[in-house]
């Protein structure tokens, strides 16, 4: 067990106090047994915070998690992005991060079989797969030396997004969970990108036979969307906007509860701040009751 040195200065504090908020320049500990994590640096053999936020401690690793920051991906994260530009055998994707992410031509599924070799013709018609402004879901594959990240869409789950609407949230509000592809009972699918981009779309049924025919992967036209489906999509969008406005974590169960509670109102009414507050409060109390 670690024993912290007694505090000799007013700024010092014990690291294992929970929910401790630190601000930049504040000394976290003078004990060198701790390791330097994100949001900290060492100065004169002291561990000092560099951002304002909560101290998090895993064994000996001490890090400070800021209340909000740009998306800093990890390998395996599901992200939603927008194509910013086309480059040599690659796309640059805006994922609301410190830098634009890279999607290599070699890390997407091409029409006509997963294992097909890429040829020059594919390079010439990259724009027919993804053009500037297209939305896509992808997974973080690797990091480059400069901190930029590389994406891939080599799974049937990922690829071009359509039939829906984008909601932008701070990345810190997206809760990590088992699945970021949510199918709601109302016929709406939600892709919760960990980078804060959320795609709300009409549910599209994909039969197993379809999976082997990826010709349909890069269609640009939307399907027919009925009035009820449009209403359901905008209702889910407004629920997510409400959660963003009130700085609540966004995850599947809270969206489900809020959707059910909101059915007595029109989607447009969900934008009023008072209603948002009462819906969130009731959803949270329902969640606590369910636990």
């Amino acid at each position: 067990m670690l024993i912290l040195k007694p505090a000799s200065h007013a700024d010092d504090m014990e690291v294992d106090r929970k929910e401790e908020i630190v601000t930049p320049g504040q000394v976290i500990t003078k004990d060198l047994a701790f390791m330097r994590g994100h949001g900290t640096f060492t100065l004169n053999e002291q561990l000092v915070a560099s951002v304002a936020g909560k101290i998090e401690r895993v064994n000996k690793l001490v890090s400070v998690k800021p209340l909000k920051t740009r998306f800093n991906g990890e390998i395996g994260d599901v992200v939603v992005g927008r194509i910013a530009e086309l480059g040599n055998k690659r796309w640059r994707v805006d994922i609301q991060g410190r830098q634009e992410a890279t999607l290599l031509l070699s890390s997407i599924n091409l029409p006509g079989g997963v294992q097909r070799r890429k040829n020059e013709a594919d390079e010439m018609e990259m724009r027919s797969f993804f053009a500037e402004g297209d939305m896509l879901s992808a997974e973080v594959q690797a990091f480059f030396g400069d901190g930029g990240c590389s994406l891939h869409t080599r799974s049937f789950k990922y690829g071009k997004l359509r039939n829906g609407c984008l909601v932008v949230a701070p990345s810190a509000l997206i809760k990590r969970s088992k699945s970021h592809f949510i199918s709601l009972s109302c016929g709406v699918d939600v892709v919760l990108g960990l980078n804060g981009y959320i795609w709300v779309q009409k549910h599209v049924f994909i039969s197993p036979e379809m999976q082997n025919q990826p010709e349909g992967l890069y269609i640009n036209e939307n399907d027919e969307i009925s009035m009820e489906e449009r209403e359901a999509i905008s209702r889910v969008c407004n629920i997510i906007t409400a959660l963003v406005n009130h700085k609540q974590m966004i995850y599947e169960t809270i969206i489900v509860f809020m959707y059910e509670n909101s059915l007595e109102y029109q989607p447009v009414e969900l934008l009023s701040a008072d209603l948002q507050k009462s819906l969130i409060d009731s959803a949270i109390s329902q969640l606590e009751a369910a636990e």
């Binding site: 601000t23 930049p24 320049g25 949001g39 100065l43 909000k68 920051t69």
Partner: peptide, 11 residues
């Protein structure tokens, strides 16, 4: 800058 979560050595 602090609000944006940008790491700085001190205020």
């Amino acid at each position: 800058l602090i609000d944006a979560g940008i790491p700085i050595t001190d205020y």
